[in-house]
């Protein structure tokens, strides 16, 4: 299907036209439910008031919801960019080591050098960039076949050991605290964090939209991309930097959330096909929805316990992921 609006025309698949609005509605509905979920019963009027920034909910629930939506979308986008760059459907900022790179830099910056939250984002970004360059550099020429994911896993293991050195340098309470953050949690999210994430999202997403057009040829192979006149020499590094910029602020605020990019990309491709821009848009919606669902369920399902979002995503995510693949197997049989 070809959509024309004035001078601009682009091709859109029918599935995408169906899926994207449906998912958007689903995520919005989920956000509405999340705004009402929690310890106290919340009327529709109170939720509307919260959306206007009034009342306690605007301080306590709204920031978490906004960070979950933005952070989920950004992490998913980061993962899907990496999937295209590495030409491997299993790439993910967590699996390739970007998140762990941020974690190490942030832990060292915060615990050893005592940096403030703003500076920590930059530290996290530097860590993510350093690791992405390392992983992509080492994995050069073995993009396909999962080699690069293995390189990422290996780098993850080394960085995980460094994290543990910092974690074990105190007593049990401190160990537990750092361990929870290093698995991802949204419990500490405040309005300041929303602003921080929003600034990075506002900076990154236009770039992503600009580069979106070149993703299609790139997904078909670097040679194909060059053949249609895309200069991969600068495009690839820029995309990797973009992936790092998308994931680092999220890690700084809520710690690394595992598998979000992997799940979002995988499910999105099953839903809308292979056109990278459509997969990216769908996957970002999915990432936002999954993280919001995980965090909301974590805080509302078993009060007074608060289950960290990282644990919920790795639990629910792995489950969903497996179910999706199993269902697909059955369909194909």
């Amino acid at each position: 299907m070809i959509v024309r609006t004035g001078a601009i025309s682009f091709t859109v698949s029918g599935r995408f036209l169906l899926m994207f609005p449906a998912l958007t509605l689903l995520v919005l509905a989920l956000a509405w439910v999340a705004l009402g979920a929690g310890l106290t019963e919340t009327s529709a009027a109170e939720r509307l008031a919260a959306l206007r920034g009034e009342g306690m909910l605007a301080e306590l629930r709204l920031p978490r919801i906004l960070v979950a939506l933005l952070g989920g979308a950004m992490t998913a986008a980061s993962g899907m960019i990496l999937q295209i760059v590495s030409r491997n459907g299993l790439a993910d900022p967590g699996l390739l080591g970007l998140s762990q790179g941020s974690v190490v830099a942030i832990l060292l910056g915060g615990v050893v050098f005592g940096l403030g939250p703003q500076a920590l984002v930059w530290a996290g970004l530097a860590g993510a960039l350093a690791v992405s360059l390392l992983v992509l550099g080492l994995g050069r020429g073995m993009m396909a076949g999962g080699g690069i994911v293995m390189v990422g896993l290996a780098v993850n293991i080394v960085l995980g050991a460094v994290t543990e050195i910092v974690m074990t340098s105190g007593d049990a309470a401190r160990f537990a605290r750092l361990a929870v953050w290093s698995r991802g949690t949204l419990s500490g999210v405040s309005n300041g964090d929303v602003a921080l994430i929003a600034v990075w999202a506002a900076g990154c997403l236009p770039v992503l939209a600009l580069l979106g057009r070149s993703l299609g040829p790139l997904a078909l192979g670097h040679d194909t991309a060059r053949a249609v006149g895309i200069d991969t020499r600068w495009l690839l590094p820029v995309l990797v930097m973009l992936a790092a910029c998308l994931s680092a602020p999220v890690v700084a605020v809520c710690g690394p959330v595992s598998f979000l990019g992997l799940i979002a990309g995988y499910v999105a491709r099953r839903l809308v096909g292979d056109a990278p821009q459509e997969v990216l848009a769908t996957g970002m919606l999915l990432g936002a929805g999954v993280l919001l669902l995980a965090d909301t369920a974590g805080r509302a399902l078993l009060p007074p316990f608060v289950i960290p979002a990282g644990l919920m995503t790795s639990f629910a995510g792995v489950l969903v992921f497996l179910l999706a693949i199993a269902a697909e197997r059955r369909l194909n049989r």
């Binding site: 049990a172 160990f175 537990a176 361990a179 929870v180 698995r183 595992s258 598998f259 289950i307 960290p308 990282g310 644990l311 790795s314 639990f315 792995v318």
Partner: peptide, 14 residues
């Protein structure tokens, strides 16, 4: 995946 899942659960119990 399984490793991350298990260790997240361990830290939660802690």
């Amino acid at each position: 995946m399984v490793g991350i899942l298990c260790s997240s659960a361990s830290t939660f119990v802690m």
